[in-house]
């Protein structure tokens, strides 16, 4: 048993290293990974910033920016599905499945390396946010906890994306299928506006959306507002999603063949 866990960790690291090694070689990808969050921040803050008033927030930017942080991190999870679809299409999954390696390592390695890339994106975004006036009014510790909650939720969704990537037959399909549900997930939530302004049925959806929960928890922590049980609930959602979807994704991987 211990041996199996050790193998899993080692194989996962070999897989993660495969992807991480490539990051510094692909400067274009790095540049775009940095530009996207900057664009999101600047667009949202300057386009909507002046026209929206949120009860309880003097400054819409302090409300909005944690929402954008959350959305950007969650969008980053789509890379997991795209990468796995690419491995599948190129026949690499067949090769990996014929090796005496851990079954779950391929997806663990992939999700972990995507997490590293996501953290890079996040760091760039925080720097830009601070430059355009965002402040961690809740203090450093709360900001760290908030960031961990957001990153963990994005990591959980990358296991969902893994299943999508292994279910479609092309990288192009993985791209569409991976991003399309991100829009309702992140917009029908508290990320950009107060859900109480939405029509009744939509508000019900937004309130039930786990993304609302995670965003609310992170926003409260970044701003030093009372967070209540939101932090625990968002942690529970992330852990639950990882538990369920890692089992499903590994099962899916063990049955996937190219072509």
């Amino acid at each position: 048993m211990t041996r199996r866990v050790l193998w899993m960790l080692r194989d996962s690291w070999v897989e993660a290293e495969r992807h991480l090694r490539i990051i510094p070689r692909n400067i274009e990808l790095l540049i775009f990974a940095a530009i996207q969050p900057i664009m999101f921040l600047v667009l949202f803050v300057y386009v909507f910033g002046g026209s929206i008033v949120i009860p309880g927030f003097d400054d819409y930017d302090q409300f909005l920016m944690p929402g954008i942080f959350a959305q950007t991190l969650v969008f980053g999870s789509a890379f997991t599905g795209i990468g796995l679809a690419d491995d599948l299409q190129k026949g690499l999954v067949d090769r990996l499945r014929s090796l005496p390696m851990s079954r779950s390592a391929v997806i663990i390695g992939r999700t972990v390396s995507d997490l590293v890339r996501n953290l890079f994106t996040f760091a760039v975004m925080i720097a830009v946010a601070l430059a355009i006036g965002f402040r961690f009014t809740g203090g450093a510790w709360n900001a760290v906890v908030a960031t961990v909650l957001l990153v963990l939720f994005s990591y959980a969704l990358s296991w969902v994306q893994a299943i999508i990537g292994l279910s479609v037959t092309s990288v192009e399909a993985a791209n569409s299928a991976g991003f399309i549900w991100m829009f309702p997930l992140t917009f029908v939530s508290s990320a950009f506006v107060d859900p109480s302004t939405m029509p009744g049925w939509l508000r019900t959806v937004a309130d039930a959306n786990p993304f609302t929960l995670v965003t609310d928890a992170a926003r409260a922590l970044y701003n030093g507002n009372p967070v209540g049980n939101d932090a625990w609930w968002s942690l529970a959602w992330s852990v639950g999603l990882i538990a369920v979807f890692s089992a499903l994704a590994t099962r899916k991987f063990s049955r996937s063949t190219s072509g």
């Binding site: 495969r18 490539i22 070689r25 692909n26 190129k90 026949g91 690499l92 067949d94 090769r95 014929s98 190219s258 072509g259």
Partner: peptide, 11 residues
């Protein structure tokens, strides 16, 4: 196993 596609990591 060498499958029908050259299963190499091209990066």
């Amino acid at each position: 196993l060498t499958g029908q596609y050259a299963a190499v990591e091209e990066r």
